[in-house]
Amino acid sequence: MICDAAVPLAPPAALSAPAPAVPGGSDVVLVVDDVPDNLAMLHDALDESGYTVLLATRGEAALQRAAQALPDIILLDALMPGMDGFEVARRLKAAPATAHIPIIFMTGLTETEHLVAALEAGGIDYVTKPIKPREVLARMGVHLGAARRARQDASQAHQARNALDAFGCASITLRAGDGRILWQTPLARELLQGWFGATGPWAPESVRDWLRRHVLAENSAGPPAPARTEPAQLNVEQGARRLTFRLHQQAGDSAGGGDWLIVMRESSDAQIIGSMGLAFGLTAREAEVLYWVVKGKINRDIGAILGASPATVKKHLERVFAKLGVETRTAAAAMALNRVRLLHPQFGG
């Protein structure tokens, strides 16, 4: 007789070791059935085919074994005493650790409503009893192959996002229709929280509006627009700091505006302000004032940025004029821009 406490048909090590630790890397199958003859037949067929087999005869034991071993696939009897297979499947799919595991139902029920119930509970497929091992193996092969490809795609996407982070770029995928963030790299999450205080699933309103404007422009009627040499870009500034959003590519279908991969980069012009100070012998505050003059800001705006009065800004600017040997804002800005561009070609007014 087979029992959950000690299942003699499976190697003892296979009962407790998680799937990645199985010698040889064979796929791990959890078979759940309350009929010993069914377990024996499936165990032998799966074992001969190179699978590592775990067994359970009750729903509670199946949940425990799945959480411990994280099998690659589960063969699950639909009708069992106590907790039936439908409830087992629902609980497995509700748990983040086991939600990804494909479930194939084994059922003697052939009514359409029962088969639909199996799929609605989280099953990916079903086989009908009496069990035919060759059919089970064929179905398993299809779903294990699909699961491997999904894991590989997820791994490649994860590596790509990590690569963007490694180069100082954060990335998010954003749904244009409602502004929901579908995924984000750790650096993107950190930047959004630091700049916008955003911790939820929605992008900041300014980013959502910018993306919607872009999508509307792309989808608007009329003659084709000339090819864009630069991707659409949004700049958010805080003092001399800047957070740039660039559209990289459409990451999903175009329904509702589509899903878009957006790359973010944080930069600061603090080094440029320092270069201005060194080039013209300015104090730190004078260099900041000149920086914002180059940016086209008036004294009132500069005062608001630096936390000073317009009168104080005017006094700093008079000293800047004297040190540069100029008399107007335009001349000061032109001289500063020409000098700084020699050291920072990317800097513009």
Rank of each mutant, 00 (worst) to 15 (best):
A304W: 08
A255T: 07
L75P: 01
A217Q: 14
L192G: 03
T110F: 06
G122S: 13
L261D: 02
G281K: 10
R134I: 15
P310Y: 10
V263I: 08
G256P: 11
T185M: 13
A67T: 00
R228C: 04
G85C: 11
L55N: 12
L337M: 05
N219I: 15
Q184D: 10
R329I: 03
I181S: 04
I273P: 00
L343F: 00
M83N: 06
L337C: 04
G59I: 04
P81G: 09
E237C: 03
A78R: 05
R242G: 09
L192P: 01
A170L: 02
P310C: 15
C3W: 09
T57H: 13
P204T: 04
I302C: 13
L342T: 07
S206F: 00
G325E: 13
F105C: 13
A287F: 01
V22R: 01
G123V: 13
E60K: 15
S155K: 06
Y51P: 08
E190P: 10
A166H: 10
Q249S: 05
G277L: 11
L15Y: 00
A40E: 07
L75I: 10
H158L: 06
L9Y: 05
D269V: 00
T185K: 14
S171K: 06
L42C: 02
F196P: 03
A284Q: 10
S206D: 01
G179V: 11
